[in-house]
């Protein structure tokens, strides 16, 4: 009861701070602008409009979501330590792991609202397409414009963003915002090419290098698994089993990263 109360208070403060930060508005504005622009781009490619809009729209949700997750996530703890605002908070009846949990929940809530806004913008653009397009063109589409299956891709993007946020927060507990940004972005890129590490022995002769690569394959998050944009856009099935397994994998990875962040943060000296 006490834990949930203090976690909720910290989370709500993060949410309020983020919502009032102009950087966030800029990011959301550009994402919505990009989604709207895709409507114009779609017009240039006869017959492929809906695919282009879906592709660009989902990519915008993912990309701008990652920007928000990284740029806010890296400062979540390190800024508090740098500015010493953490001193007053930790003197209150809150445990250090509760503080980390609150910070994380606050940013996840912020991301949820942002992803929701961007998704609504995308569905509005697609709904407009569907409403204005002639029936004979619609018949050529692989899937309806405002396809509910896109929600599967959006759900996986959101879990991926939760994972990236956890990683950014983890680095933020012991390093500066700039280093945290470099580490998190590096991990994000590496995470998307993770599958290549599994079969590294096919690329190099060295058995040691192949073993190291295999080790990294298990440590790094497999972010490519969360990317089902192409399947959704081309109306290929994304099974409930795949969805469930990927979400479960994401949650387990998030839990591990958060536990590590809490462990480090609980032992940290604030000089």
């Amino acid at each position: 009861m006490r834990t949930s109360r203090v976690v909720a208070i910290v989370a709500f403060n993060v949410f309020k701070e983020s919502v009032r930060d102009k950087v966030l508005y800029n990011l959301v504005f550009f994402a919505v602008l990009l989604i709207a622009t895709s409507l114009l781009l779609g017009k240039l490619t006869a017959g492929q409009e809906v695919k282009i809009i879906k592709d660009l729209g989902l990519a915008a949700i993912s990309l701008f979501g990652v920007f928000i997750a990284i740029f806010i996530g890296i400062g979540l703890v390190s800024k508090e330590v740098e500015r010493r605002s953490i001193y007053s908070i930790l003197a209150k009846p809150i445990r250090r792991h509760e503080f980390i949990l609150g910070k994380y929940s606050g940013l996840v809530l912020t991301l949820l609202v942002n992803v929701a806004i961007m998704s609504i913008a995308l569905y509005l653009v697609l709904g407009y397409m569907s409403w204005t397009e002639a029936e004979e063109f619609k018949r050529a589409w692989d899937a309806p414009a405002a396809d509910p299956a896109m929600l599967k891709a959006i759900a996986l993007i959101f879990v991926e963003l939760m994972l990236v946020t956890a990683v950014a927060l983890f680095f933020s507990t012991f390093s500066s915002p700039i280093l945290s940004a470099v580490f998190t972005f590096g991990l994000f890129i590496a995470g998307h090419f993770n599958a290549d590490l599994k079969h590294f022995e096919g690329v190099v002769d060295s058995r040691v290098a192949a073993s190291v690569a295999r080790g990294w394959y298990y440590v790094l998050p497999n972010l490519a698994a969360f990317d089902v944009k192409a399947q959704v856009v081309h109306a290929q099935p994304v099974t409930a089993g795949y969805l469930g397994f990927t979400v479960a994998y994401g949650f387990v990875y998030i839990a591990m990263v958060l536990l590590a962040a809490m462990w480090i943060f609980s032992r940290r000296d604030f000089k």
Partner: peptide
């Protein structure tokens, strides 16, 4: 207990009322 750190700093975008309201909430 209560604690005032040296050169305190709080959140930029919260109001004094919101900040204190949050802290009061932590004490129930």
């Amino acid at each position: 207990i209560g604690y005032l750190p040296e050169h305190p700093y709080f959140y930029d975008y919260l109001t004094a009322e919101e900040l204190l309201g949050g802290f009061a909430g932590m004490f129930g």
